[in-house]
Nucleic acid binder design. Sequence first.
DNA 1: TGATAATAGTTAGCATGCTACTCATTATAT
DNA 2: ATATAATGAGTAGCATGCTAACTATTATCA
Lengths: 148, 148
Amino acid sequence: MPHQTPHFHFVDELSKASRKLRTLFDARVKQLGLTLARARTLMLLDRREVLSQKELAEELEIETPTMVRLLDGLEKQGFIERRGVEGDRRVKQVVMTAQGAELAKDVNHLAQELRAEFLRDINDKDLLKTIDVLRAVNLRLGDLIERG
Amino acid sequence: MPHQTPHFHFVDELSKASRKLRTLFDARVKQLGLTLARARTLMLLDRREVLSQKELAEELEIETPTMVRLLDGLEKQGFIERRGVEGDRRVKQVVMTAQGAELAKDVNHLAQELRAEFLRDINDKDLLKTIDVLRAVNLRLGDLIERG
DNA sequence: TGATAATAGTTAGCATGCTACTCATTATAT
DNA sequence: ATATAATGAGTAGCATGCTAACTATTATCA
């Protein structure tokens, strides 16, 4: 087997980490009726209270059609509501129901525990450096995607 | 907006990087009729020549049903073939067609260029450190997933 | 003002990830 | 030797990601 470059390994490990993270998180929040993507949406609403669908999508860096379906699910589950906004009839604001807000607290707690669990052996300095690198990569990827 | 922890940012940036990477790569290999997942499969076959479906799935760290459908697509496109193996009729070995092997070379080249492009500003030391961290995280995530 | 642009949300269609299950075959153990 | 386990491939069903379109509304500009 030919030697693989660091560039290759970066992409490889990154893809694998993301899949594993989703798998583990999904398994942990399944009992709550949630998934990673839905939990991410609830946790964002928990921090920001009220956002339009567009703003939600932008914050999570997913496309609006993906957000639409995520919200369809959360709405059907009774965790969020869509509200028309006066002054612009195109926009819908998204707010958590009481049940959703309750759930968001549990999910936040659970997510925090899970993160601590799998990042247990990573020291602070390395973690911060890794976050820096990922941020830089994301900026660059965003640029390259925009450019076509 | 409440302050967010490094643990949170790690997960956030990781998820975003993985999605962006797939989006960018998919756009770049679209003209070749490929996607990131299919390209990854071809590139692995290019390095290892012959593998069973099970081995392919293990190497890429995806589940076998996911691999089945990936191979269905690649087979329909004429890039790979499935072959029965003598001595164990459960196993199917996967080999690239001539066309697939040709394509794999192009894809390898393209992937290498793309990686260099978006990792341009990351220095070697930081990149290696990041890979180390991702590897450690992956090991731990694997453990936690296994444990249930 | 009235045509044209842009924007927010949506739908449709595809690919990829998962789990839970089945089927055929091989390995193991009594 | 035969019942039982384990293994490899596949199917079904769901969730989430994308792009390409469409609809309704609002903004722009000539």
